[in-house]
Design a binder for these strands. Structure first.
Length: 875
RNA sequence: AGGCGCGUAGCUCAGGGGGAGAGCACUUGCUUGACAUGCAAGGGGUCGGCGGUUCGAAACCGCCCGCGCCUACCA
């Protein structure tokens, strides 16, 4: 039994339990069950992904919730899976092809997709395997992938239904275009980062006059596609010019001067060049004024034929330089100004996106957003912390139609066909063989695929088998909780709510817990390019999964980001080790003791037993309360304090005497020890699953695995404030002696004598009864003062609540040192007295404050005065 | 420009109307038979600033200062 190593070594133990859980099917949820359901769907990581510390936090929290509920008797399902991550995955596979010297275009669409599947087969389990190593208690048999047949059917069903209801439409609009990924992006997929740029002020001469506009632009290359200059109709400076023309520099075209309210008279010179093909606002203005659209930047980011020589074929940024040089040459560049502005970048490849006009598919979002807003308003979905609801509402109220088509190959192909003969467009659940209108068999399918987030939006119900009415759907949907970070509230959370309500009539989850972001120790976002990432697997290898999980849990306070460093994790490894050693000690003392027996006569329990049991009940209640309210750090800290500060520091020390040989009370002590340790292990299991399983197996060999053991529940009848204050006397007396020892620099190995004078009979009885324990803890021989006791010159004195402590020193310390120590103690007490005297002398306080506060303050004051009096009397 | 969050011990942070807390770091002393990844004893803070509400504010309210983040089509 007592074959534990001196130090906890996670290696081997983690593997052992991963295998055991798997063999025993511990994490399997039941599609039909008498138990209450609790379900979480995993935010599906990208198949291309590598586990990072953010996943570790996200999954630790989910695992805590799931394990906690499972131990509480729920039919707990943690639904795992991965996301096909269209653009990201396509990029990865393309890069691999590039290394072999091929391009996807060389392979053709079908073959390329085959390659992606091959790639997925080879590497797709990587992140899943990494997740398993953290101890994630997902029901792995249910693992899904967004491109699975079933999920694809859900996508198809949703797309067709939305199309039939007019909620999906196709149209030519200005969208965000990534010239590198060669696809449209939704507004959300564009990141705005402030960049240092320039404002070029360009002269646009007015035709037939000597007047000119000076127009500022951040993108001079778009000049080639200008089709008008706009001014505000109310601008007196230019009123007379409206309807005339300017000569477009370089091109030497005439373009009209138009009037539009959009133009801000205050900004710059109040004149705006209009490039309908390359700016969303200009596009709108262009439509209004029927301006021609000249596309000068192509889909590949190079200048088009319409840009004209010598620019055609040049990269857009090179073209910019050429244009600026040319303008300079011609004297048309009035001025260059530094200008910082937010440039849109592709969230996948970080290239600068190009506003581009093209034909795309959109979701008409307003009708979907309305019920989704109401669901959160009504509380059908609750955000925790609640403040995130504001962000949600803010976005949902300003939401714009969602561009869902992507010009890539990897993803759910849009189920739309066009008849080559009659031009009929068909959007269908099943692939058509011929035109539904004219019967012609020549059909072409839309080449585009859907935004990856389109399928993610269905995840909570598509993974349960929707559109079939499965048992899983009935049992686990709506899911209970969603755990994610704030940065995908728009991308994912909001869209799941919209789609869930639309297609199931119910919200996809009841609560959304938004957790922090993990940053480095400087508070910087972790990123590979900064080199400040912490690799969770490396950490697991070095400190064990439990240490990492405990650290993340302890730091996961609501509403604040986590600054993580290896030192923090190392610190919590000490806690894991502490638990290990407390268990080691306990197990050493339980040889031959049957830990499965639970019936113990409470009268046999010693004071220390009753005390630790009382403290345990309070701790259990606090931990449960914390977990029920997503206060993970609070739960971690409660267990930490109890385990280290109370169980190890006091109870184990108090109990040692009774464990020797056949000491009286040994049975009660062993019973209490195993009971409390068992409760600690079960309380901690959701946070530290591996080490708790290992120790539980040794402590309770007959009880089965801890992952399905019942989570501790508080027993009110074991809570006793009287017992707790009685122990406080023992602790105070012990600390007083230790304090004398420490302050007077007496070695711990020197046994001291101590005499206690109690201020009441009960305290005296406690001190007398607990004397053996105090003696041990303070390395002293203690006794109670009798009537003849007199303090003499050689004694150090300390006064604590209800007890005067006298320690004869026999020359171990000089009188000066003793006086110093006593004066220090007195100064502290006098500070307290002043504080309370001031407070209590305030008439208004006495009148208005609650009676109990006044009463307790008066009692405290009296106690401190008493202590000071006693202390003074001795010097 | 708007919105949100944060400012508490040297560091990282809990807390939150009634005597300032934890971990780490620091000082001193310890091979006390679970643990030196440890034990014991200590030092350390006008809780960002100024006002207000209150008998009482670190906490609630207002303003200010500093630091983050998010959203936005100002050329």
């Amino acid at each position: 039994m007592a074959d534990l190593e001196k130090q906890y070594n996670p290696e081997g133990i983690e593997e052992k339990w991963l295998a055991r859980w798997n063999e025993e099917g511990t994490f399997k949820a039941e599609d039909t069950s008498g138990k209450p359901p609790y379900s979480i769907v995993i935010p599906p990581p990208n198949v291309t992904g590598v586990l990072h510390i953010g996943h570790a936090l996200n999954h630790t929290i989910q695992d805590i919730l799931i394990r906690y509920k499972r131990m509480n008797g729920y039919n707990a399902l943690w639904m795992p899976g991965t996301d096909h991550a269209g653009i990201a995955t396509q990029n990865v596979v393309e890069r691999a092809l590039m290394e072999k010297g091929t391009k996807r275009q060389d392979l053709g669409r079908e073959e390329f997709i085959n390659r992606v599947w091959e790639w997925k087969g080879e590497y797709g389990q990587r992140i899943v395997n990494q997740l398993k190593r953290l101890g994630a208690s997902c029901d792995w048999d249910r693992e899904r992938f967004t491109m699975d047949e079933g999920l694809s059917r859900a996508v198809r069903e949703v797309f067709v239904t939305l199309y039939e209801e007019g909620l999906i439409y196709q149209g030519e609009y200005m969208i965000n275009w990534c010239p590198r990924c060669h696809t449209a992006l939704s507004d959300l997929e564009v990141e705005h980062h402030e960049k240092a740029g320039h404002l070029w002020h360009i002269r646009y001469p007015v035709d037939g006059t000597d007047r000119e506009f000076i127009i500022a632009t951040t993108r001079p290359e778009t000049l080639l596609g200008d089709t008008a200059v706009a001014v505000n109709p109310n601008d007196d400076r230019y009123k007379d010019l409206i309807g005339q023309s300017v000569i477009l520099p370089i091109k030497n075209f005439k373009i009209p001067i138009i009037a539009d309210e959009y133009v801000d008279m205050e900004f710059g010179t109040g004149a705006l060049k209009i490039t309908p093909a390359h700016d969303p606002n200009d596009f709108e203005i262009g439509k209004k004024h029927n301006l021609p659209i000249i596309k000068v930047i192509g889909d590949d980011g190079h200048m088009t034929k319409d840009a004209g020589a010598p620019y055609t074929g040049e990269d857009r940024f090179k073209a910019r330089k050429m244009i600026v040089d040319e303008l300079k040459e011609q004297g048309l560049l009035a001025n260059i100004e530094d200008h910082a502005h937010a440039v849109g970048q592709c969230y996948r490849c970080h290239n600068i996106v190009e506003p581009n006009i093209s034909k795309q598919w959109f979701v008409r979002i307003a009708p979907l957003a309305k019920p989704a807003i109401e669901a959160v308003e009504k509380g059908d979905v609750k955000f925790v912390p609640k403040s995130w609801e504001n962000l949600y509402f803010d976005w949902m109220h300003n939401i714009r139609d969602w561009c869902i088509s992507r010009q890539i190959w990897w993803g759910h192909r849009i189920p739309a066909w066009t008849c080559k003969k009659c031009g009929e467009v068909m959007v269908l659940r099943d692939d058509p063989e011929k035109c539904i209108k004219c019967g012609h068999t020549g059909l072409s399918q839309d080449p585009d695929v859907l935004d990856t987030w389109f399928s993610s939006a269905l995840w909570p119900f598509s993974t349960a088998g929707w559109p079939d009415k499965t048992d899983a759907l009935k049992t686990f949907y709506p899911t209970s909780t969603l755990v994610t970070s704030f940065d995908i509230i728009f991308f994912w959370v909001a869209r799941m709510i919209m789609m869930g309500l639309k297609f199931t009539g119910e919200v996809p989850f009841r609560e959304v817990y938004i957790h922090a972001l993990v940053r480095d120790s400087e508070g910087q976002k972790m990123s590979k390019s900064k080199g400040n990432t912490i690799d969770p697997l490396e950490i697991v290898g070095k400190f064990g999964a439990d240490s990492m999980r405990m650290t993340l849990t302890a730091l996961a306070a609501q509403g604040r980001d986590i600054k993580l460093s290896e030192e923090r994790i190392e610190g919590y490894r000490h806690f894991v080790n502490k638990l290990w050693n407390a268990s080691r000690f306990t197990l050493m003392n339980l040889e031959g003791f049957d830990t499965s027996q639970t019936n113990i006569n409470r009268d046999d329990l010693a004071l220390a037993d009753k005390w630790i049991l009382s403290r345990l009940q309070k701790t259990i209640a606090n931990v449960r309360e914390a977990l029920d309210n997503y206060k993970f750090n609070e739960a971690a800290s409660q267990i930490y304090q109890f385990t280290w500060g109370e169980f190890c520091d006091w109870y184990l020390e108090l109990v040692k005497l009774r464990l020797k040989g056949d000491e009286e009370g040994g049975t009660a002590a062993r019973h209490t020890l195993s009971h409390v340790l068992g409760a600690i292990l079960r309380m901690l299991h959701p946070v530290m699953p591996f080490v708790t399983e290992e120790l539980w197996e040794k402590l309770m060999p007959k009880a089965g695995i801890i992952a399905i053991a019942p989570y501790p529940a508080p027993d009110e009848s074991l809570i006793s404030d009287n017992i707790e204050s009685e122990i406080a006397v023992v602790m105070d007396a012990t600390v007083a002696i230790r304090n004398i020892r420490g302050e007077l620099s007496i070695k711990p190995s020197t046994e001291l004598n101590a005499i206690f004078r109690a201020s009441n009979a009960q305290t005296g009885t406690t001190l007398k009864r607990q004397a053996p324990f105090i003696n041990r803890l303070a390395n002293a021989k203690t006794k109670l003062a009798d009537e003849s006791f007199k303090k003499d010159d050689d004694m150090a004195v300390s006064v604590v609540a209800g007890v005067e402590v006298f320690v004869p020193l026999g020359g171990l310390a000089g009188s000066d040192e003793r006086r110093q120590k006593a004066e220090k103690e007195l100064a502290k007490i006098e500070k307290e007295i002043k504080f309370f005297e001031k407070k209590l002398s305030n008439k208004k306080f006495v009148e208005k404050a609650p009676a109990e506060v006044v009463k307790s303050d008066r009692a405290k004051l009296a106690e401190f005065i008493e202590q000071a009096k006693k202390l003074k009397a001795h010097f």
